[in-house]
Design a protein around this nucleic acid. Structure first.
Lengths: 221, 221
DNA sequence: GACATTTACGAGCGATCATTATGAAAAACA
DNA sequence: TGTTTTTCATAATGATCGCTCGTAAATGTC
């Protein structure tokens, strides 16, 4: 029985010589830059500064390490759900999601683009289950947005004939597009300009103008 | 000196036992489904039905084979340039590009998504040059769209304060987003609905209404 | 200091990677 | 038929893949 992820048990043996969290963060960035299957254990070992056996004893195998890196990348899933549900409108929620993607994909200290979108875009059939995890996070985001949009429809903030699925897919589509554009070197300002453009076309109840700039500011939170 | 890609020289020796074009098409689909680096020569050999040495003698190495598959995937680059330049408006050009992406990414007989966008999304530093080729095709599309938009601005079809770069990036962003959504299983109708939504927000000269449906039909060519 | 426990590290596991040397087989030309 | 030319299939190249074994080192407890 190895002591891998959880387990707060006392360990009277030799202490670990590296910071597990820091090593995980380095692994995340390495996967982020190179992709899941195209990052080798020896790549990770070199970047993390620890030998291969130490990786296995601390994180399990390559798949488990990636999944843990993915969870670190995604942060608390509940906070995202609450942010979307708690936004003043679906449009504000979308603005938040897009602004967050811009920030994440163009960070200075991290690789460009989306760890999941690009690092898990494709690969061999052997890694199909890991890719399915990535697709599940996208589906979860779309589901959250869809229900938030439906709530706006019943709440009178959106026309009742709004196609919630399409609108949610539009946001997801834009986020995924950001990933490729960011990886190609697009600056944050350009991505944000695209986000503003998309939000400008957000459906409205007739007669109610919306201050797009205010919505954008709200997304910076 | 092997007889690889071009070279129409007479070959008095034993004729090839397989259809080079059909083999290339199979290689394209294999790369399309599995990605560049994550597709092995043995994967290709199995799919193409020919042994590894035959691949090398007919196509060169793996990189050359992928690049040739990429050219087959992209089709004639001049025809795309002419289609964008020859469209009645930048908006129609964008509609065409988007509709074409929808068709290509959701085809029945081909893998879902974009060969270049997903198959070349990420990878090891050793394949950076191949990824650069993929990024170059995206940059070329954006450049074509940007100049088409600029032409519409001077031609009075678009407001003079239109940000051509952002608008072109929006189209490219949407196309790249389509790739991920299609790979996740989104049907063509959903992608087309997103495209329609994006096109509905296309800038207009004040007072000139645009029939979005007619623009969409034009994209079906 | 002996003991139990845990980690660190070098070495090595079989499998697969992209690629090629080899030589027999087959077709075209003489 | 003989020669030339090219392709064919088999097999092997060294390198790297993900992963693990064995042993030394470092801790807490006795």
């Amino acid at each position: 029985m190895k002591n891998t992820t959880s387990a707060k048990k006392r360990s009277p043996g030799r202490p670990r010589s590296f910071d597990r969290q820091a090593a995980l963060e380095t692994a995340m960035k390495t996967f982020w830059a190179q992709g899941y299957e195209t990052t080798s254990i020896s790549d990770l070992s070199r970047a993390m500064g620890i030998n291969a056996p130490a990786i296995y004893s601390a994180f399990g195998d390559k798949k488990q390490l990636f999944l843990e890196a993915m969870r670190l990348y995604l942060g608390d899933p509940q906070s995202q759900a609450e942010a979307i549900a708690g936004a003043a409108s679906a449009r504000e929620a979308a603005a938040m999601v897009l602004a967050n993607a811009v920030r994440t994909f163009t960070g200075e200290d991290t690789p460009k683009g989306c760890l999941i979108g690009t690092g898990l875009a494709t690969g061999s059939p052997a890694a199909a289950d890991v890719r399915a995890e990535g697709a599940a996070t996208r589906a979860a985001l779309e589901a959250l947005l869809t229900s938030r949009i439906e709530r706006d429809k019943t709440g009178g903030l959106l026309p009742v004939d709004t196609d919630a699925g399409t609108l949610a897919a539009l946001v997801s589509c834009t986020v995924q597009g950001f990933s490729t554009l960011a990886r190609d070197g697009a600056p944050a300002a350009r991505l944000q300009a695209i986000a503003d453009f998309v939000l400008r076309g957000w459906p409205e109840i007739e007669g109610e103008g919306v201050d797009a700039e205010a919505v954008r500011r709200a997304g910076d939170s």
